[in-house]
């Protein structure tokens, strides 16, 4: 309870601090909106050219796109401290964090909360709402919860990847780009239904970085499509939980990293 109270204080100070530079804040938010909007145009161009891709129409792809971008926008907003973690170590601020009677995770999350990611979030939301209006989905309470769960699960999955990326920097500074390709590449890959990919790539997105569990499976369930890549029907309903499990897993790896740091001091 106490930690949540502290987190909201961090949250407040982050907003106040970023509003010190109002113009920059507004420009950056608009920038994030536009950049992602151009990405969406790319998807549109693709479907405009080919009509549909392996049975998926543009509006369906927009649903995938909206879910994954909203999830990633939340991740970028609240895990920024982990994303820029190498800097925190280099400047010695991580030592300061270790000197305070709170968990490292809470303090790093609180250290930097990026409100301007609202730009990407809004863009994802606009696309999602547009897709929902265009598609004839029979909405039930279950499907609504699944949609929200899929965004939350996706957020935790991306967040887990960012935490793993930060953890790697305890051992090496050079390895960061590799994980970057997992996060940003993951967003790119998951904005399309994964059934359009080659089987080996699909397996990566199911078993290694389980993006399919927070995007493909629940979205297919919402769309009422039956191609679950030979998984049983329940997977769509429960798969967002895998995102949360992945996040918990990455936190336990994080703890190993912190232990390594305090024993080597580098």
């Amino acid at each position: 309870m106490d930690s949540i109270k502290l987190y909201f204080k961090y949250f407040r100070f982050n907003i106040e601090s970023q509003l010190q530079y109002k113009t920059s804040f507004i420009m950056m938010s608009i920038g994030h909106f536009l950049i992602t909007f151009i990405e969406f145009l790319g998807v549109w161009v693709l479907f405009e050219r080919f009509g549909n891709i392996q049975g998926f129409i543009f509006e369906e792809a927009a649903l995938f796109y909206g879910i994954v971008h909203m999830a990633f926008a939340i991740t970028e907003g609240w895990t920024r401290g982990f994303d820029t973690f190498p800097k925190l170590v280099r400047l010695g601020d991580f030592d300061r964090i270790l000197l305070r009677p709170r968990t490292t995770v809470l303090q790093i999350l609180g250290h930097d909360i990026q409100m301007m990611r609202i730009g990407r979030f809004m863009q994802g939301l606009v696309v999602l709402i547009w897709a929902i209006f265009k598609l004839n989905i029979e909405w039930t309470l279950g499907k609504t919860l699944l949609l929200i769960g899929s965004i939350i699960g996706g957020n935790f999955l991306f967040s887990g990847l960012i935490v793993l990326q930060a953890t790697l920097s305890f051992w090496s500074v050079q390895s960061l780009e590799i994980v970057n390709s997992f996060t940003y590449g993951g967003v790119q890959a998951a904005q399309y239904p994964i059934s359009i990919y080659k089987p080996w790539f699909r397996k990566i997105l199911i078993y290694i970085i389980p993006l399919a569990t927070v995007n493909y499976f629940p979205a297919m369930t919402i769309l009422g499509k039956s191609d679950l890549l030979s998984f049983s029907k329940w997977i769509g309903w429960f798969s967002p939980l895998f995102g949360i499990l992945f996040f918990i897993f990455s936190l336990s790896i994080w703890r190993i990293g912190v232990k390594h740091y305090t024993s080597t001091g580098s």
């Binding site: 100070f13 601090s17 010190q20 530079y21 601020d93």
Partner: peptide, 9 residues
């Protein structure tokens, strides 16, 4: 050589 204070606040 380091600060623990919130720079912009």
């Amino acid at each position: 050589q380091r600060t623990q204070l919130w720079w912009d606040l």
